[in-house]
Design a binder for these strands. Structure first.
Length: 232
DNA sequence: GCGACAG
DNA sequence: ATCTTGTCGC
């Protein structure tokens, strides 16, 4: 079923307003909190898939048991994308759909694992920060690319990490989740620390480069998009 | 001005 | 993100 996503208060219509919203909301990011202990409670992966031709966006939220990585609950939401993809403004394209999917969960999401950045962002307010602030949940960002940031290559061993930097500032970490495979780029979203975020990511990657939470959410939102496209 | 640029 | 064949490896 295709729905119309409710937009959060003050939702911007232009890029300039969107950047202003980021500048304003970033003061609400809570840093320094330890956050949930890796391997305990629940962890929720969120991801979004698109069908640009039909202007469809599908979001998925998959709750995993943090210890066993078994799926506890899943939810999806499909609707129209209300914002184009603009580097640095990804959240405005994905947040309404993700919030709709999260509202469909009965289980406590625990930690939110987002596909993209948190503090590793031009204005230090990436998708993971945005979702964290709007939901109040602890959140982290796990991206597949370093974006505009730089990092020294971490050693080839799983678990090795190197700082992801913007000038002299460490905005995240390049973390090797599989030996000899390109690292993932982890950053803090809300209510947790970079060390804890990296520990969570390692706990979520026993076998593949990307967190199980992300892989499950990715597969689910693609499926939801297929079903919606087929019946539209 | 031009290129780069999370998903 | 998405478009796409074959291919190497566990």
């Amino acid at each position: 079923m295709i729905t119309s996503f409710p937009l959060p208060a003050g939702w911007p219509a232009t890029e300039a307003r969107a950047r202003a919203v980021q500048e304003e909301l970033r003061s609400r990011v809570v840093l320094g909190e330890q956050g949930p202990a890796p391997g305990t409670g629940t962890v929720t992966g969120v991801d979004v898939a698109y069908d640009d031709a039909r202007d469809l966006v599908a979001a998925a939220a998959v709750v995993l048991d943090a210890a066993s990585l078994e799926v506890r609950e899943e939810a999806t939401a499909v609707g129209r994308a209300g914002f184009p993809y603009v580097p640095g403004l990804l959240a405005f394209r994905e947040v309404p759909a993700v919030l709709a999917a999260l509202r469909g969960l009965a289980t406590d999401p625990g930690l939110l694992v987002c596909d993209g950045y948190g503090l590793a962002h031009p204005r230090r307010f990436g998708l993971a920060c945005h979702l964290g602030v709007l939901t109040g949940l602890p959140a982290i960002g796990v991206a597949k690319n370093p974006f505009t940031f730089t990092y020294p290559e971490p050693s080839g061993a799983r678990g090795s990490a190197a700082p992801l930097t913007d000038g002299a500032e460490e905005v995240g970490r390049a973390l090797r989740t599989r030996a000899g495979v390109k690292p993932v780029f982890v950053s803090v979203g809300h209510r947790t620390t970079l060390e804890s975020a990296c520990a969570h990511v390692l706990a979520l990657t026993p076998r593949y480069r990307l967190p199980e939470s992300t892989r499950r959410a990715d597969a689910l939102c693609r499926r939801a998009l297929e079903e919606a496209s087929g019946s539209a």
